[in-house]
Simulated assay, not measured.
Amino acid sequence: MSEISSRKQQLEAFDRLLTIMDELREQCPWDRKQTIDSLRHLTIEETFELSDAILDNDLEEIKKELGDILLHIVFYAKIGSEKGAFDMSTVIDGLCEKLIRRHPHIYSDTQADDEEAVKQNWEKIKLTEKGNTSVLGGVPRSLPALIKAMRIQEKARGVGFDWDDQAQVWEKVEEEMGEFKAEMDQSGEQQKEKASGEFGDLLFSLINYARFVDINPEEALEKTNRKFIHRFQYLEEAARKAGKDLANMSLAEMDIFWNEAKSH
């Protein structure tokens, strides 16, 4: 890791980036062609690449991916300035004002002695800012369903709509499990549709319980995904070394390699 730079160096580096962005937008055929719409899917991809680096705890890669995302932010601001809508200065100033507004316990006389109070203040202020008629109005529609469930529950908690303790939440999990099983014991297309709805309720209640016991369900599921991938790839490699084809192996044969993978 390089030595952490001073504030002066940071500002100089940011100024250099803005200058390069101006030059690329003027001189590079690809950069000239880009629009806010054309950059959108690339930004999403870069965000997932940053997420991968964070999961790998690879600080060097995190640094690189943060640079890529910063480039996109600067790019959007450049396009915004060309349209006369916003520029980097107004983007940053707007962010600064929002941070000050949403931290009245720092910049005003509001009391907030713990993290939960801070989060509740944040959500209440956010609701008045955006003019939403619903507490849940600020949840992005395109969020993946698991993360969306987390955000919905967090926002509801922010205005006091929540269970009192984790025992109640676990009872709800067991209730939803029973309802799901009851539908699965039936047959027919109508029952299948009902079972799908009950499965969604079960997942929602499990995510709720995870929140109560301070487990991030997205992170927990991703760890399990990675664990499965690691073990399955071990299984594939072990089968190749044994001169076998997975498609022609019995489950009992595959289980031998799978159990070996657990210790690697």
Rank of each mutant, 00 (worst) to 15 (best):
I62T: 07
K63I: 06
K64Y: 00
E65F: 01
L66S: 04
L66I: 07
G67R: 01
G67S: 01
G67N: 01
G67F: 03
D68W: 00
D68M: 04
I69Y: 02
I69C: 02
I69P: 04
L70E: 02
L70C: 05
L71E: 04
H72Q: 13
H72F: 14
I73E: 00
I73R: 04
V74G: 10
Y76Q: 12
Y76M: 13
A77E: 05
A77M: 07
K78T: 12
K78N: 13
I79R: 08
G80C: 09
G80M: 09
E82I: 12
K83G: 12
K83D: 10
G84K: 06
G84P: 11
A85N: 08
A85R: 02
A85T: 09
F86P: 12
S89V: 10
T90K: 10
V91A: 04
V91I: 06
I92L: 03
D93G: 10
D93E: 07
G94L: 02
G94Q: 06
L95A: 07
L95I: 03
L95W: 03
C96T: 12
C96N: 12
K98N: 14
L99I: 05
L99Q: 07
L99G: 08
L99T: 01
I100E: 01
I100D: 00
I100C: 05
R101A: 15
H103T: 14
P104N: 04
H105P: 11
H105D: 12
H105V: 05
I106L: 03
Y107S: 13
Y107H: 13
Y107G: 13
Y107D: 13
T110H: 03
Q111V: 12
